[in-house]
Amino acid sequence: MANLALHPDALTAKCLTLKHWLACSADRPEKLRNWQTTRGEDGRLYLSAELRGPNPAGALRAFMGRQALFLSLRVEPSVESSADDAMPYLDFSTPGRTAGVWRLSGVWVEVWYPETPDAAPRPVQRPPQAVTVPSRQGLGARLPQGRRNKTLKETNPA
């Protein structure tokens, strides 16, 4: 049995997907990992990658927008492979994950992230308490008045 990951169509779809991912997410910390290539019952290749990072939903949304633009430019009668392309859509059919799915040159590409329950809400930070100034009573009679200003007569007796 041949290694599906080395199939020319799967390699082309993976290379184009990675190229667009790198162009779209140069400043994002999210990464595509765990690439898998399978063949469906219909005989088509399926390419799947897991999206990991602090904000996978935002990263997937931005990436799908770029893929939609790329595929809309490819879907023309003059382009040979455009008949094998399909615009991206969100897929919620697999419990516990959200996926962006599209078809590129006859290969179904799926970029997904696991749905995690929202983290517990952060505790509300209390407003800072007012700083209390200690009472100056009992510190001595001279401290509250400060230094005595000398007048010109006192400094220059003439």
Rank of each mutant, 00 (worst) to 15 (best):
M1W: 10
H7F: 02
H7A: 11
P8F: 02
D9I: 01
A10W: 02
L11W: 02
T12R: 13
A13Q: 01
K14C: 06
C15Y: 11
C15A: 11
L16K: 02
T17Q: 04
L22E: 14
C24L: 06
A26T: 11
D27F: 05
R28P: 05
P29C: 01
R33I: 14
T37P: 00
T38M: 06
T38W: 04
G40M: 01
G40F: 03
E41L: 13
G43W: 03
L45H: 03
Y46D: 10
L47R: 02
A49P: 02
E50W: 00
E50D: 09
R52P: 02
R52E: 15
G53V: 03
P54A: 10
N55V: 01
P56E: 04
G58A: 12
A59E: 02
L60S: 00
R61M: 10
R61Y: 12
R61W: 09
A62N: 09
M64H: 00
R66A: 10
F70M: 01
F70V: 08
L73P: 00
R74D: 07
E76C: 05
P77F: 01
S78L: 08
S78F: 08
E80G: 13
E80M: 12
S82E: 06
A83L: 11
D84N: 12
D85R: 01
P88N: 03
L90P: 02
L90Q: 10
S93P: 03
S93M: 09
R97L: 13
R97C: 11
T98H: 04
A99Y: 04
A99H: 00
G100Y: 04
V101M: 02
V101S: 06
W102S: 02
R103C: 14
S105T: 12
G106L: 09
V109T: 07
Y113N: 04
T116E: 15
T116W: 06
P117K: 08
P117N: 07
D118G: 11
A119V: 11
A120V: 09
P121R: 01
Q125H: 05
R126L: 12
P127I: 14
P128K: 02
P128G: 09
Q129N: 15
A130I: 11
V131F: 13
V131A: 14
V131W: 09
S135E: 05
Q137V: 06
L139V: 09
L139I: 10
G140V: 14
R142T: 14
P144Q: 10
P144Y: 09
Q145Y: 13
G146M: 05
G146N: 12
R147Q: 14
N149I: 14
K150H: 07
T151V: 12
L152V: 14
L152G: 00
K153N: 08
K153Q: 10
E154Y: 05
P157N: 08
P157T: 09
